[in-house]
Design a protein around this nucleic acid. Sequence first.
DNA 1: AAAAATTTGTTTACAAGGAAACAATCTCCA
DNA 2: TGGAGATTGTTTCCTTGTAAACAAATTTTT
Lengths: 151, 151
Amino acid sequence: MDMPVRTSEDVDLDRLSTALGFLMRLAQLKIYERFFEEVGEHHLKPGEFSVLWVILHNPGIRQSVLGQRLMIKRAHMTKLIRALEDQGLVTRQVPDDDRRAVEITLTPAAADKVRQASHWFFTYEDSVGANLTRDERQQLTGLLRKFVGID
Amino acid sequence: MDMPVRTSEDVDLDRLSTALGFLMRLAQLKIYERFFEEVGEHHLKPGEFSVLWVILHNPGIRQSVLGQRLMIKRAHMTKLIRALEDQGLVTRQVPDDDRRAVEITLTPAAADKVRQASHWFFTYEDSVGANLTRDERQQLTGLLRKFVGID
DNA sequence: AAAAATTTGTTTACAAGGAAACAATCTCCA
DNA sequence: TGGAGATTGTTTCCTTGTAAACAAATTTTT
């Protein structure tokens, strides 16, 4: 990896230590870092997985809708989908009722792959926040769901 | 901006909708998006600001320590510090007791600038999570602090 | 004290992601 | 009906951040 070992904890963050945006960024970085440590490169990356997972559960979803829900910009989505297409994981289809749009579907091979990947993906997700109590983890999940406006 | 307007909420996320890592990523993206909408480009970016803020409160802090606390990798820190140096905002000094290290200090001009910037920065930070109740926001902050291991 | 291993910062090459401009299509309304 | 304006996806260029290899300095081992 990269980070050194000698940890000096005596850094004064002042007001930053209670700033919600700052804490969220740190939390996210921590989650990603541990993800790559534990799950490694052998599998799908988190971004790729979430895209494929959502396509699996919403066959024929349009790029724009996918991007809105996962907060992926259109320019970036184009690249992601092309990469997945090049790997033979998704199929693009222009619908008749709106020939600007593109509908995405998983190939059968990809569906299998995603279901397999979901095993270790959600195993990891379940391990996130293990330094919190069961109740705290539950609370945090609920608060984040409200924060981002899911349900 | 970029995101389209027509929002289709009927996307099935299945288990993803309770996955902590996924929710955290979404939350972070939402915060960043709103940051750039509201605060705009006229001021410091959040990453730059946090670096300068921490240097202000820890004069002579070493790059490595700064990086550990803000979870910025060394390769990236080098670039950030050089950019700040080029803007005349920080000073680099190699200490006698360890000539590999670099100690960073703000220039007087930068100290002023950071104190000014802190006004709108923390105003924004205070507005994060406005769709939560006061108690929920408090809870979320506390849980995130425990999650990332601050205090 | 000398060799081996570690730490720190840097460089280089690359991946992830965003902004702006664009073409094609669709919608709305005068 | 026929523009005017909006939406969708794409392309190009740019910013942010990472990985790997490296040099210099320090620490550890023997």
